[in-house]
Design a protein around this nucleic acid. Sequence first.
DNA 1: GATAATTTGTTCGTATGTATC
DNA 2: TGATACATACGAACAAATTAT
Lengths: 257, 257
Amino acid sequence: MKEAKSSNKRQKLVRAQGVTLWHQIQSVLEKELYDGVYSAGEKLPTEKQLAERFFVNRHTVRQAIAELVRKELIVVEQGRGAFARRDKLDYFLARRVRFRENLLRQQKSPAEELLTHDTVPADLVAAKALCLRPTTLLVRMRSVGSADKHPLCYTTQYFPKERFPDFAEVYAENHSVTATFQAFGIADYTRKSTRIMARGAEAEEVRLLKLRRHAPVMVVESVNVDHDGTPVEYGVCVWAADRIQFVVDADSHDASI
Amino acid sequence: MKEAKSSNKRQKLVRAQGVTLWHQIQSVLEKELYDGVYSAGEKLPTEKQLAERFFVNRHTVRQAIAELVRKELIVVEQGRGAFARRDKLDYFLARRVRFRENLLRQQKSPAEELLTHDTVPADLVAAKALCLRPTTLLVRMRSVGSADKHPLCYTTQYFPKERFPDFAEVYAENHSVTATFQAFGIADYTRKSTRIMARGAEAEEVRLLKLRRHAPVMVVESVNVDHDGTPVEYGVCVWAADRIQFVVDADSHDASI
DNA sequence: GATAATTTGTTCGTATGTATC
DNA sequence: TGATACATACGAACAAATTAT
């Protein structure tokens, strides 16, 4: 279908035949986006160029563009232009949530880099999530998860120190939470609760995730429990919103029970 | 615990006793936030004021503030100040997702206002979601959902026209999707898939949802199916990110199967 | 609408204490 | 003991965003 932007040549539209001009333009561009004429993240022609192509006023083009934005097919940035929507990674939230599995399923190469780790007394929020008394000691790890070398998320995880005294050290060797839990005799763990929210990125997140300033991030707060239902991990993960979407799928959920 | 900000009086910290100054400040403020000294959305003292209160440099206060931001306990806006985090409504994503039920469970008064409705040919995305051929006619509705008169979300919903010819008219009377489906003989419908993403708000969303410019919004794309598994609704809902968080809970999920 | 004041954000520099080799 | 690296703490100046006048 990719025909080297031959579609950029000028083309007349049908006027006053029951379908508005902006809607015709919108349909043409939608088809081109769907056919991959503009690949993910690629810049579309400027409004002026599109106006010339379709022999219409710039405002008519703008209406078509506004509709494409509403349909989430493109994003527009003031002073930069309009861009084909980047394909977002599907991150499945099911009973079992595994970073590596999730990425491998999308043919992406996962990587987890441990930034820092220390031992801290549980604050009020973490204590509640893990069903422990405040000031109980926790192992805290901060790490960045990537797909194909592109940073995806910035995670802060807490593990009960008493049960997992050297969690961070074991994790540092195999770079996998699942494998580390297995080293501690936990063959399986499941997601007890997941909270998803969104906000603007902080300076540190901008740096670590290579974002534009104030870019939206999604924050996922989660608790994982072991076979007995005892909390083993509380995590807060900050995701680059332009690279990920979360999927809660009825089928995939059933399949993973 | 609320003691009229008497805690705003100056207080000396312990220096050079193994605990850093910024961590002591962070702990004091965390406790105050937890005790409700600053209620939801309330402005905290300025950095200058906090620096005077604790007899430290502004940078030292900033470190404490950065930590509170990381813990999602406050939000900071340049030029405006730091604010205690607003309580977010929990919106549960389970097998059955019902706007009214979700809000009533949180003691909030739900309202759905229909803005516009029309009939449109299915675009490529909607057709795929509803398992129909493109250009199949769909009823499209746009509406704003509110909690206690505060706008929460801006929804665009599509229903197969053939099966639900006057969906919008029926909906206009009872202001409830569930009740409208019942009028069409669908006693029950379930969520087949849910996709959650985030981006900055568009101009129209800023107006309808009373947001600040470029405020983050969460976009939820969903498909609901009837008892036979046939898609009956495809919706795209834009949520004010500062007022909502989505919850995928293992327990509540089981309970609603 | 223009201007000033306020508040947070960023970047210099300096000094100090602590941990490590 | 010295050298080094790192986090903490303070100070000053300026940039950027918001609010008040």
